[in-house]
Design a protein around this nucleic acid. Structure first.
Lengths: 171, 171
DNA sequence: AGCTAACATTTGACAACTAAACTATCGCGG
DNA sequence: CCGCGATAGTTTAGTTGTCAAATGTTAGCT
């Protein structure tokens, strides 16, 4: 089939990853990136069509779901790895949808705490259940042993990267 | 001084990944996602401060660098996993910066081919060199053996995901 | 030729995202 | 108390990203 299809991103080659003589670190990065993009796009598409939600919204809700007392926006920013400014907009939209509420504690008027509403909890738990299933399906062909290895090795990568971020970090 | 800058994303906990009783597939996904975000942010920051470029621009240039004859926008879209509409804007900006040029072949006026300019080649090769070094640095603590394993297992994941995308895929 | 289906890219409306500037508070030392 | 420097969030400007619909173009059919 010489189909040119469009959508559906052709599975064959998708994205570079040109083996060539590149350094292993670079190849690993390209592979991680394309794999992650592929999964993200699929999850995004399903969240959108099945729940009318976006991935970052889902991520944010997930954090609040586990902290029934709510979280300050700064904390949400760190946990979701999203910048402060972005959290503001994200929270605004979710509040508009009635999934969360914002409130300022009495002690310190600088802070804003976001917390799930009843509706938010219900919505999220439905999404979470589906989400977990999608992941299992997508990784169905990967053996449990390989997943375990990946889990550990990925931690090594994350730790190494964390230790070599540009200046600053602090000690 | 006063840095604070940014902070730096605290290395300790960074992002969820709450081990808890979650399914391995889900944990792996969360870990891949946070690790990828971490690396992307670092590369983005460096590309910006050292070269005034963005990551998607770098990706796009990388594709053109290997195809001296240029690529059609649709092909670029597939390879970079970026939507068509987005490629249009990306190409416009890069053309504005003088790194690439757009031209329409005589045979078929529906298509637009983007190709690197001399300046684009020079810029990209400098960035690519630095980029490779950043990756090596970031992954410095990961043993070559682990990288090799990751490379292979990641392929398995990618293949599995590709085979289980929602409807449609080909046949 | 005239029609229509398939293609390639652009446009438009939004959400997400970053970095940097700005606003409002809090808290501590003088 | 007052002021000054941290903190917490919001705003602003601009890029990236998605999808869906619109524009042009080409090619096949009759």
């Amino acid at each position: 089939m010489a189909q040119a299809d469009n959508e559906t991103i052709d599975l064959e080659i998708i994205v570079q990853d040109t083996q060539e003589g590149k350094k292993p670190e670079l190849r690993l990065w390209l592979r991680m990136l394309s794999t992650t993009k592929l999964i993200s796009q699929e999850i995004r598409r399903r969240l959108r069509t099945e729940f009318g939600a976006t991935l970052p919204q889902f991520d944010l809700l997930a954090q609040l779901y586990r902290e029934k007392d709510g979280l300050r926006l700064g904390e949400l920013s760190k946990r979701t790895m999203v910048t402060n400014g972005n959290v503001t907009g994200l929270v605004e939209r979710l509040e508009g949808d009635g999934l969360i509420v914002r409130e300022t504690p009495h002690g310190d008027r600088r802070v804003t705490v976001a917390k799930l509403t009843r509706k938010g909890e219900d919505s999220f738990s439905a999404m979470a259940k589906a989400h977990e299933g999608w992941l299992r399906d997508m990784m169905a062909d990967v053996e449990p042993a390989a997943i375990k290895v990946l889990l550990d090795d990925m931690s090594l990568v994350k730790a190494s990267v964390s230790n070599h971020l540009s200046e600053g970090e602090s000690a």
